[in-house]
Design a protein around this nucleic acid. Structure first.
Length: 436
RNA sequence: GCGGCCGUAGCUCAAUGGUUAGAGCACUUCGCUGUGGCCGAAGGGGUUGCGCGUUCGAAUCGCGUCGGUCGCCCCA
């Protein structure tokens, strides 16, 4: 065989039939639940103006600073493969005048996203998210609802030990004050911070809070926490969100350092994890790090719509990472969906029979019975072998003799018993047998 | 952007520096003219990721490069 010259680009993958089971499963669960909560589906282009993300996602975010796939069109437009959904959806909200729809507008999206970064477990340059947005709603109840929906999806996919981490990062009433406080705190200890954090100190001091560096950690643990410095309205909002979560008994954990890297968040931020039950015995050393990465996250973004040119519109949203869910499903050995057998196989022999087979196949399609075939093969042996591989319960045999007589043989693959029936009765006969 | 590990058949993997790089699985065909599974036989499939070097001789050693994978950063 010739050496294959081409391969998928770094961090991008074919989703082979084997994997499609998981994909489909995740998509179906997301869609069903989203529909139940009255979300409407939206698809947006994979490419958007670069400016949309620069402004929306934010210039200080890593996503914009170094992870965008950007290109210039022949006409000179600067476009970027979407690294996340939210700015696109806000753009669509404004472009189509959704402010005039009954508020809030609840939308969901599912599709590929692109970020230029170094691939590793659960992290790819092309990956998929399921995304929810509720635009035009200020109430804390929707924050809780979005968290609840994501939680429901993950449970429905049979993931265990789901943990929600939650925080509030305030709004532009209280955050500037907290930021100054924090900057002051870190400035006085700047020499002890890692180089990244020294940069963050100037650009976005809040991000220092989720630095993993050991020395930084010690400093962070003594730092002022935002929840102690929220303004009245943010404080109330956060308290309400937590009360809602208590009410529906979701297992959340406060994480005062959960900041998130996208610039537009205000008030509530949250992330989802699957906690490993093996935590106390790291001896086997399997699968720990991959499982710890966030399965999803999101938060409130009360300023984004205005930032992108609309009226002040409060909103909240979030996303689940499809590949990461798949990883978690596999790691937890959630029962993988077995290959579904093809109940009936149609084998033919001879030209006349082949022609009649095409028609017979259509009869079965109309009866919604899945029938396998291998019309390209002429030997009966090879066709029966295929029927065996497909784990068919019955094989229909249509040869020269049967074609002339207007009959077909039904072979029970388990017992090997065969019975000849009229061609017109084939569908009904098979239906009857399958019911047993 | 930085670091660890790994690149041999479609897949999983063998092969002290030494003939023509092997095995299992998978695939195709035959044994069996119109009857599957089991069994037996045969066959196709490789520039050992690529390049340069060391050597009488390289899948094996060295350097480089590309790719994969895992981690840091960040995120889903």
């Amino acid at each position: 065989m010739k050496k294959t010259k081409f391969q998928a680009p770094t961090g991008m993958h074919d989703i082979l039939p084997e994997e499609q089971k998981y994909f489909q499963k995740i998509y179906n669960v997301c869609e069903n639940i989203a529909n139940f909560y009255n979300f409407k589906k939206i698809d947006t282009p994979v490419l958007e103006e670069t400016e949309l993300f620069a402004k929306g996602t934010g210039l200080t975010s890593d996503v914009v600073q170094k992870q965008m796939f950007s290109l210039r069109t022949k006409g000179g437009d600067l476009l970027t493969l979407r690294p996340e959904f939210t700015p696109s959806i806000v753009r669509a909200y404004l472009e189509h005048g959704m402010q005039t729809w009954p508020q809030p507008v609840k939308l969901y999206a599912f599709g590929p996203l692109f970020r230029y970064e170094h691939p590793q477990a659960g992290r790819f340059r092309q990956f998929h998210q399921f995304n929810l947005e509720i635009l035009g709603e200020e109430s804390s109840v929707v924050d809780a609802q979005i968290i609840q929906i994501f939680y429901n999806i993950l449970s429905e996919l049979r993931l265990k030990n789901i943990i929600i981490e939650i925080n509030s990062i305030g709004d532009n009433q209280c955050r500037p004050y907290y930021k100054r406080l924090l900057t002051g705190y870190f400035k006085s200890r700047e020499e002890s911070l890692c180089s990244d954090c020294r940069r963050r100190l100037r650009e976005n001091p809040l991000r220092i809070l989720d630095c993993k560096d050991e020395k930084c950690q010690r400093i962070i643990s003594q730092a002022p926490q935002i929840i102690d410095h929220l303004c009245e309205s943010c404080h109330r909002h956060f308290k309400e969100v937590l009360e809602f979560l208590d009410e529906i008994q979701l297992p959340y954990r406060l994480n005062p350092y959960l900041v998130r890297g996208l610039d537009y968040y205000t008030k509530t931020t949250f992330e989802f994890f699957v906690e490993s039950p093996l935590k106390d015995k790291p001896a086997e050393g399997v699968l720990e790090p991959a499982v710890r990465s966030a399965l999803g996250g999101g938060g409130r973004y009360d300023g984004l719509v205005k930032l992108l040119g609309g009226e002040e519109t409060k909103a909240c949203g979030g996303a689940l990472g499809v590949e990461r869910i798949m990883l978690a499903m596999k790691t937890k050995e959630t029962k993988s969906t077995e290959a579904i057998p093809t109940p009936v196989f149609l084998a033919q022999l001879g030209n006349l029979a082949k022609r009649k087979s095409l028609k017979l196949l259509e009869d079965f399609r109309r009866a919604r019975i899945h029938v396998g075939e291998s019309f390209g093969r002429d030997s009966l042996k090879a066709q029966l072998k295929m029927a065996d591989k497909l784990e068919s319960s019955y094989t229909l045999l249509l040869g020269q003799k049967e074609a002339l007589e207007g009959t077909v043989i039904i072979r029970d693959m388990k017992t090997g018993k065969q019975e000849t029936v009229k061609l017109e009765k084939a569908v009904r006969e098979v239906e009857r047998r399958l019911k047993k």
